[in-house]
Computed example of a mutant assay.
Amino acid sequence: MICEHCKQRHANVMVTQVHNGQKVERHYCEVCATQFHPFQFEVSEEPTSLQQLISNWFNFVPTTAKKENATASASSPKACPSCGFSYRQFLKQGKFGCGQCYVTFSEQLPQLLERLQAGTQHVGYVEEAPSNEKIEQQISELRASMQQAISEERFEDAASIRDEIRGLENKINKEGEGDA
């Protein structure tokens, strides 16, 4: 593939950007990529791990000054007391050695997570409990299917539907007792 900008050299850098929900891919040669792409990069022949790419993009391990590294390591524990895992090893491998590592490196994790995602607080999916009206509607549908099973002489199916109806009715009764 030829560079989209100079149309002379072989394109070996692909830049993917998302604008207004649309994914746009551009293919540049090394020369044009260094001129137009905001990230600085090095082209190497050896493969790079995903953890290394992420740590390079977000500057997880600062290389600007030895003084910053000294103050950061002095204020933070050097290794997990349980497994001996260091924070630097975590950044390199992308995972902790044990559960105690989360406690040991708890001061560094919030700023790391803020760089990777929208925030540090988990706001996961919470399934809503079905309302009594929905359960009653489900019961009426089950009763109709139970009657259908009886008329077709599928008595085992009718019995399992009956048990399901009883379970839903018990659920409604328990919720009604809790509200009172």
Rank of each mutant, 00 (worst) to 15 (best):
Q117A: 15
A118F: 06
G94N: 12
G176H: 11
E4F: 00
Q52V: 11
R162Y: 05
E68S: 02
Q8I: 05
G178Q: 14
N20L: 09
R115H: 14
E153S: 12
S145M: 09
F39E: 10
V31I: 12
P130D: 09
K23D: 01
C6T: 15
A70Q: 14
I54S: 07
A11E: 02
Y28G: 00
A70L: 13
A118W: 07
K66I: 06
W57C: 14
R166N: 08
L116W: 13
E141I: 06
A79V: 06
H27N: 09
V61S: 11
C29P: 01
M146I: 13
A149P: 02
T16D: 08
E25H: 00
Q51T: 15
N69H: 02
C83T: 09
F85I: 05
D179A: 11
L91C: 07
Q17W: 02
L113D: 01
G167E: 11
F90G: 01
E46R: 13
R88T: 03
G94W: 11
F39C: 04
P110E: 11
I54K: 06
R143V: 07
N69L: 12
L53E: 11
A72W: 07
R162C: 09
K171W: 00
V103S: 04
E177I: 01
L53V: 15
T104R: 00
Q89Y: 06
E114K: 12
C32Q: 09
T48G: 07
L91D: 03
E68C: 02
E128Q: 13
C6V: 13
S151E: 12
N12Q: 13
M1P: 01
G124Y: 10
E156F: 10
C98L: 03
E107D: 10
N69I: 14
C80I: 01
E175K: 15
F58S: 13
N170G: 13
E127M: 13
T120R: 14
Q93D: 14
G84C: 12
R154Y: 01
A72I: 08
K23G: 08
T48D: 12
K171V: 04
K174W: 01
V61H: 05
I139D: 01
K134L: 09
N12R: 10
C80V: 04
F96I: 07
A70G: 05
E46W: 02
V123E: 15
E177H: 02
E68N: 04
H122K: 15
V31H: 06
K66S: 02
Y125Q: 07
F155E: 07
Q138H: 08
H37Y: 11
R166L: 05
A159K: 08
K23H: 10
K23N: 10
S73Y: 09
N69D: 03
S49H: 07
C83Q: 02
V43Y: 09
S160K: 13
E42T: 05
W57A: 10
A159T: 10
S106V: 06
C101R: 03
E136D: 09
S82D: 03
F58A: 15
E127S: 13
G84N: 08
E127A: 15
Q137M: 04
Y102P: 03
V18L: 11
I2T: 03
A118Y: 02
Q100V: 13
A129K: 03
P62E: 00
A79W: 00
F58N: 06
H27K: 08
K95E: 06
Q17M: 12
